[in-house]
């Protein structure tokens, strides 16, 4: 049975001007990279949240809506309630020696968890971290601690290489030094990574995001081409995602209406 966890916030740290990382006094040992929690803020609402680390349980939240605003207002000692972990995690191929993680914006959060687990299992990781500008970069320190190399790109060139993650990603994918690539971030970026990996014959996984209501594969709010993001995903192989007509093209709002990009 799905339990409602309530635990104490241990630490709140600022990642940048609008993202905070919340560490909870809880070792959620069953949590795997790529999975998510449904965080309940009583009287406010509930939202899915990527897991940034399993033990201690960590998540990062940008102040963009009602629930996330309430979450960013949490202080050490406050209670936080959540259910999970939910969803399909990233899969690392058996005998993998080296993986590539490509994160755009907040997409880096579950990828850090993945790279950290990889390091714990003696699998090397290289990261490409993209953001709009220097001030938007998050998880840089964390990634440096667990990756062999970290490449940074910003759209405006205020940090690292100017441009999207794609130039660095292409160089690394072409090198064929990786057993699998993992992308999380804007859908167009993930689509470009999946297409590039297909071209170069490298396995790849992406993590989709859709408006979600139940989190347990029942209501159908988060479906993409008949697959539920909450239960069949959020992680899909690049090939599965590329086969979806809506991948990189459209998403549905809370009422279920489809919006083309």
């Amino acid at each position: 049975m799905i339990k409602i966890h309530t635990n104490v916030v241990k630490k709140v740290s600022e990642e940048n001007y609008r993202v905070k990382t919340i560490e909870v006094e809880h070792a959620l040992e069953e949590a795997l990279p790529g999975q998510f929690l449904m965080v309940w803020m009583p009287g406010v609402g509930e939202r899915p949240m990527s897991i940034g680390n399993g033990y201690p349980l960590t998540m990062s939240v940008a102040n963009v809506g009602k629930v996330s605003a309430a979450m960013t207002a949490l202080r050490p000692g406050d209670m936080i309630s959540y259910r999970g972990p939910f969803g399909k995690p990233f899969a690392v191929p058996k005998d993998a020696k080296r993986i590539l993680v490509i994160g755009g914006g907040y997409g880096v959060v579950p990828l850090y968890f993945l790279a950290k687990r990889a390091k714990e299992n003696d699998i090397g990781a290289v990261a490409v971290l993209g953001a709009r500008a220097a001030k938007d970069i998050i998880y840089e320190k964390q990634l440096f601690a667990v990756c062999d190399e970290v490449f940074i790109t910003t759209d405006d060139g205020s940090r690292g290489k100017k441009g999207t993650v794609m130039a660095e990603a292409e160089m690394l994918i072409r090198s064929k030094k990786f057993d699998c690539a993992y992308a999380c971030g804007p859908e167009m970026m993930m689509k470009a990574v999946a297409q590039l990996c297909r071209q170069h014959g490298m396995p790849c996984q992406v993590s989709l995001e859709r408006y979600m209501k139940c989190g347990m594969g029942v209501c159908g709010s988060c479906v993409v081409d008949g697959k539920t993001v909450c239960r069949d995903g959020p992680v899909f192989s690049g090939e599965e995602a590329l086969a979806m007509g809506e991948f990189g093209k459209a998403h549905r709002d809370a009422t279920g209406v489809l919006h083309e990009r």
Binding site: I2, G45, K213, C214, M216, V218, A254
Partner: peptide
């Protein structure tokens, strides 16, 4: 507004509120 569903002993309790496109 969520939470919209919760598991209980041998069942689910839901309050979706008819989300639909019309």
């Amino acid at each position: 507004e969520g939470p919209n569903i919760v598991e209980v002993e041998d069942g689910l309790l839901n309050a979706m509120g008819y989300p639909n496109p019309g």
